[in-house]
Computed example of a mutant assay.
Amino acid sequence: MHGIPIGPVFAIYYPILAAIGVPANLAVIVILCRRSCGLSLCITYYLVSMAATDLLVIITVVILNRIAGIYFRFSFIFITPVCSIRNSLNFAAIDSSVWLTVAFTFDRFVAICCQKLKLKYCTNRVASWVIGIVSALSFMKNISTYFAYEPIYVIDNIPRFCGLKLQYYTTLEWAAYDWIRSILTPCLPFILILLLNFFTVRHIFAGNRARRGLLTRSNREHQSDPEIEKRRKSIVLLFGISGSFILLYLLYFVTIIYVRIANISYSSGSDVSKTIFVVQQSGYMLQLLSSCINPFIYAGTQSKIREEVTNGLKYPLRFFTKMFKKIK
Rank of each mutant, 00 (worst) to 15 (best):
L89H: 07
L89I: 06
L89Y: 13
L89D: 09
N90F: 13
N90A: 07
N90T: 09
N90Q: 15
A92Q: 10
A92F: 06
A92G: 05
A93H: 05
A93L: 08
I94K: 06
D95W: 10
D95K: 12
D95H: 11
D95F: 15
S96N: 15
S96A: 14
S97C: 10
S97D: 06
S97P: 04
V98K: 04
W99N: 01
W99K: 00
T101P: 06
T101F: 04
V102D: 05
V102R: 11
V102C: 12
F104L: 15
F104G: 03
F104D: 02
F104V: 05
T105V: 10
D107N: 14
D107C: 15
D107A: 15
D107W: 01
R108A: 11
F109A: 01
F109I: 01
F109N: 01
V110Y: 08
A111I: 07
A111L: 12
C113K: 04
C113T: 13
C113A: 15
C114I: 12
K116P: 00
K116E: 08
K116G: 00
K118P: 02
K118E: 13
K118Y: 03
K118I: 04
L119H: 15
K120T: 07
K120A: 12
Y121S: 05
Y121W: 10
Y121F: 15
C122I: 02
C122R: 04
C122N: 14
C122S: 14
T123K: 06
T123P: 08
T123R: 07
T123H: 02
T123A: 00
T123G: 05
N124R: 14
N124M: 06
N124G: 10
N124P: 00
R125V: 13
R125N: 09
R125P: 01
R125I: 08
V126E: 03
A127P: 03
A127F: 09
A127E: 01
S128E: 13
S128Q: 08
W129T: 04
W129Q: 06
V130Y: 12
V130D: 01
V130R: 02
I131S: 00
I131A: 00
G132T: 00
G132E: 01
G132L: 15
I133Q: 01
I133C: 09
I133D: 02
V134P: 02
V134A: 06
V134N: 00
S135Y: 03
A136C: 14
A136H: 01
L137T: 14
L137Q: 03
S138Y: 14
F139L: 07
F139D: 02
N142L: 12
I143R: 04
I143Y: 00
S144G: 12
S144L: 14
T145S: 02
T145L: 13
Y146R: 02
Y146T: 07
F147M: 14
A148H: 04
Y149C: 03
P151D: 08
P151K: 09
I152Q: 11
I152R: 14
Y153H: 10
Y153G: 00
Y153V: 10
Y153E: 09
V154C: 10
V154F: 05
I155V: 12
I155M: 08
I155G: 05
I155Q: 06
D156W: 13
P159N: 05
P159Q: 10
P159A: 13
P159E: 08
